[in-house]
Design a binder for these strands. Sequence first.
DNA 1: CAGATGACTTGAGCATAATGGG
DNA 2: CCCATTATGCTCAAGTCATCTG
Length: 571
Amino acid sequence: MMLLLTLPGSGGVWEEGKHAENGQKWRSLEHKGPLFPPEYEPLPSSVSFLYNGTPVILRPATEEVATFYAKMLDHEFTTKEVFQNNFFTDWKEVMTETERQLISDLSQCDFSNIHKYFVEKTEEKRNMTKEEKQVLKEEANKLTEEYGYCLLDGHREKIGNFRVEPPGLFRGRGEHPKMGKLKKRVQPEDVIINCSKDVKIPEPPPGHRWKKVQHDNTVTWLASWVENIHGHIKYIMLNPSSKLKGEKDWQKYETARKLKLSVDSIRSEYQSAWTSCEMKQRQYGVALYFIDKLALRAGNEKDDDTADTVGCCSLRVEHINLHRHLDSLDYVVEFDFLGKDSIRYYNKVPVEKQVYKNLKLFMNSKNPDDDLFDRISTTYLNKKLNEAMPGLTAKVFRTFNASTTLQEQLNQLTTGQCTWVSWPILAYNRANRAVAILCNHQRAAPKTFEKSMQLLQEKIKKKQEEVEKAKKELKQAKKEHKQLPSEVLVQKMEKTVKRLLEQLKKLQLLETDRNENKVIALGTSKLNYLDPRISVAWCKKNNVPVEKIYNKTQRAKFAWAIDMADENFQF
DNA sequence: CAGATGACTTGAGCATAATGGG
DNA sequence: CCCATTATGCTCAAGTCATCTG
């Protein structure tokens, strides 16, 4: 599917991107290849690894893997059995025969000297003088300047990740069965370079050669290699600020906006599927209902060697509980499962009676670990969706519902007598938060949360006292000047009270804002789900500088939207 | 047509830089 | 101005979905 994206009157660079017929992503591509991490530097001889209490000298390759473990010593996951076993198995594979003979028990390994050495090293680095830090910074800038950019169709574009990932110990999210495995060092011989034919081919590091150099302009990556933990391909790609990525992003939101036109008919279609005589259709109807109503992810099947997480289509019977009545509500579904990144999804949702009845039916005579939607797959779901509207897939609903929610919330919070109107940024955050909650974007509560809340509360108390004091003084002054109520002093005091009250109100709103934000992450939805044109238009309409909403990076990513959206844009 | 592969988006957490209050 | 707190950028894992393959 190719959307032809044109915007009347906008002119400029964003209309150029029309060459994507037959899947061509670029005409010319030139870059310097990825930057490799520095070679391993052996430990000074004074830092020793102990086995059974006695120092053992390891060959550099073995020692390097030992340092990976040593560096992680104060992380909780090094205490996990899976982590230790995976590490030890992979470490032994790196050892020489002699080393392997000796080191047969991880619990006899003492990495504490190595750990201490690295702690000291970070400390040293922290204590470097400003000048030394400056030198380091300049060196880093030089590398970014050299490797961080490429030339795509004649435009200099920022690369997203120009560094090859360094070796280390794999730490997946959640209870990952492969945690602790050795993530091997990537060599130039593992790397495929993608660039145009007529251009200077990047030099491999001295003494090395590339795995392959190809010239495929139907893909957007500059380099790739296969990672050894799962055998997945890793890519070097462009930064979100690039034209290539920007146009793709724009297209994504245009697809979501197109859903607006057919969402009513799609909704009534899946609702009628709830009473279909075919079980498969009923499952389709209920699954899509969840995706639409709750913004669940599609839920593809996963490999066994990954953490046990689910999305909509992979929900199992054990992940929901049905309540005929709950908290004065009827037909409540209680969801409790681990989603992407092993983030818990917990929600109690009242549903239509027919949905409830169907869920009972789907669960009938199944085991807890059986699939809830056993007759459908994400492939089937997406095939049906694509028939309903070209380009429509499950994830479009997330974008659609997120952006629609933002638009509605902004319209609501910034009109009328609502208290948020006076502080539009807080209103915006609140709208953003409604979306983040919908999408279940969570974060760990900040370490200093309680402390900073306490501080804020003290501030509020102080301000309250100030208000009281000012009010009293005003009263007193009024009394004293009863015969002269228009006295300048009284007016001034009235102003002070008013100002203090405003400040108090703002602090209290800030407190609400912080509290509501404790475990909610706004960044992900802002970056991936909210049509930036909604925000840009809102800024213009409310005279809020766009810088208050988007920082420099975000403005670069959303340059296309800032460029084209006027204040009348509606999602 | 199921399963594998490939390309690309989405995601949380962490290191570092920037900021602002004492 | 300095230190602590917050904001930003980076990292790399983990999803989605289209296409390939046998």
